[in-house]
Write a protein that binds this DNA or RNA. Sequence first.
DNA 1: CAGCTAACTAACCAAGTGGTGAAATAGTCG
DNA 2: CGACTATTTCACCACTTGGTTAGTTAGCTG
Lengths: 127, 127
Amino acid sequence: MDRLDATFTALADPTRRAIVARLASGDATVNELAAPFAMTLPGISKHLKVLERSGLISRARRAQFRPCHLEREPLDAAMSWIEESRRIWTERFDKLDEHLRDVQQAPASVQYGARRAAPGTRGQAND
Amino acid sequence: MDRLDATFTALADPTRRAIVARLASGDATVNELAAPFAMTLPGISKHLKVLERSGLISRARRAQFRPCHLEREPLDAAMSWIEESRRIWTERFDKLDEHLRDVQQAPASVQYGARRAAPGTRGQAND
DNA sequence: CAGCTAACTAACCAAGTGGTGAAATAGTCG
DNA sequence: CGACTATTTCACCACTTGGTTAGTTAGCTG
């Protein structure tokens, strides 16, 4: 399983997102994390295992407690992936704007839905 | 199912992330999307349904084609959620730095592990 | 109309998920 | 040691997921 797979999988559950949000403001033990939820401890334990496997959290050992700690890196990686897609998406629309400006300058040669119009038809030297 | 649940679930699969990345640079038909994958068309169709249910993509009808289009809003929402957690995480460490500066100025009164040290001790006017 | 293509639905399967209660493990305290 | 607390593992359950093949629907085109 890929790292991003694991991260997004971990974030796909509301209980786990709540745990991540809680850990963002400070480390906590399993019991502390379980308190807000109407769920048994083994249930929480499973969620924590998913979070740990994804790298989103790490767990230390302090006496019989196992405090959980949020790791920043996987969160960053997930955000970077989304940002990259958004960047491409946005760039495309910038180019579309540019193209529309061109079309407005020479409107005769193109029309909506012309399927055979290859993208490079601009250089047909009709000037 | 919550909207963020659906978005992160959709992004948790590598095939679906590849589809999203592909659609970021332009709309495409189901066959075009399926081409890069060693998977049957119904398989792709299922993935597209997951993406559509999450709102990440929408589908139009043009003749017998059903071109897919990437929607920006769910991507934004997912990123905002991550950003918010990161913000809280970061703020906490800024406060920790601040606290450590305070401790260096008046090292006698606090020691590691003192759990009762409230975060607002800055206003003690010891300069 | 028949035939072709794009895409979907239906039925099925193996594997995974999210939850439970009961029992086990690890560490502290009297 | 024995009791208590924090946490995990185990065995089980219903349900979902990701994939398949086979068949179906929708729309173009000769």
